[in-house]
């Protein structure tokens, strides 16, 4: 297992050489993958969302597909269609782009709710039902969806219930000056991506995910997670508090974070580290609309003493 751990830190380092100055986001994305969750990146075009997804797929040796969501995209464009094969005189299923280990769903909020829900169902069930036949999706299956900030025109905002299916929501943000300078001075990103050697084999991923699920959670930490979740439920600033599913997600993400940090136990620090990514998109603000921001989450943490 220690080899795999080392490979994990190599992965982070390698990804960090492609996406500069975003180590925290890379770690979160990796944690999301190890916790078997899906990732939502909300940010402006051009800050490196696709690059991140692509780099992760390459480094883990996984196959990668990208779906550009548009308003006329249909469910079949994602899932796949059956076409008549004259040679065999039978219908043959042509799998859609969702049949890949890493799927980048770009600008997910540009598609109609019907199309969105086709993808989201696949994410949740990890299988696709088309024309009466259920087909399992590949393993591992990791969706990175991106969405534009919802105030942009021509978007269908994801409903709360759909947002809940993403383990984490992160933002990449602009690179800092030094990172951007390095980016500008560097070569073609596409070429460098293609030249990226895998640091992990696909076969390594499953044992890693199992090891993450086995990270120790002490009763004191469960108390802390409960106190945090309770805090969101008592806070009048939010419409609803975190659901039990969200609490499970928080623990899973914290486990993955602790594992990436090289520990086999979850500390309150881990919970605090993943809390913004796990909780913010699940907490609707009571006033002014929108979701909880970083300050709201920090306030919850500061209000909740360690038990």
């Amino acid at each position: 297992m220690s080899d795999r751990r080392r490979a994990l830190s190599d992965t982070i380092a390698a990804a960090g050489r492609i996406i500069l100055g975003k180590e925290r986001q890379i770690r979160l994305a990796l944690a999301c993958l190890l916790a078997r969750g899906h990732l939502l990146i909300e940010d402006l075009p051009g800050v490196g969302k696709t690059t991140l997804a692509h780099a992760l797929a390459r480094l883990l040796g996984l196959d990668f597909s990208r779906i550009q969501f548009t308003s006329d995209l249909l469910p079949a464009d994602i899932v796949g269609v059956s076409i008549y094969d004259r040679e065999q005189a039978a219908f043959r299923f042509l799998p859609g782009p969702v049949f890949a280990q890493v799927v980048l769903a770009d600008e997910i909020n540009r598609a109609t709710p019907k199309t969105q829900s086709a993808l989201l169902e696949a994410m949740e069930e990890r299988q696709v039902t088309a024309e009466g036949e259920t087909r399992r999706l590949p393993e591992p299956f990791f969706v990175i969806a991106t969405q534009n900030p919802s105030h942009q025109v021509g978007t269908f905002a994801l409903p709360e219930s759909q947002l809940d299916r993403f383990l984490m929501r992160i933002a990449l943000g602009y690179p800092d000056r030094a990172a951007e300078r390095e980016l500008l001075a560097g070569g073609n990103i596409r070429e460098r991506l293609d030249a990226l050697p895998p640091t992990l084999a696909p076969a390594d991923l499953l044992p890693l995910q199992q090891a993450v699920a086995a990270v120790h959670v002490a009763p004191a930490l469960v108390d802390y997670v409960q106190a945090l979740v309770d805090g969101t439920r008592q806070d009048p600033a939010f419409v609803h508090g975190l659901s039990p599913r969200a609490a499970l997600a928080l623990l899973a993400a914290a486990r993955a974070w602790a594992f990436i940090d090289g520990r086999d136990m979850v500390l309150p620090e881990d919970v605090q580290a993943v809390l913004p990514a796990v909780a913010a998109h699940r907490l609707g603000r009571a006033q002014g609309g929108g979701h909880a921001n970083a300050d709201d989450i920090a306030a919850i943490v500061r209000r909740t003493p360690l038990p």
Binding site: L267, P268, Q272, L306
Partner: peptide
């Protein structure tokens, strides 16, 4: 701080 973890 009373919310601060041990390692931090």
């Amino acid at each position: 701080e009373d919310w601060e973890g041990p390692l931090d």
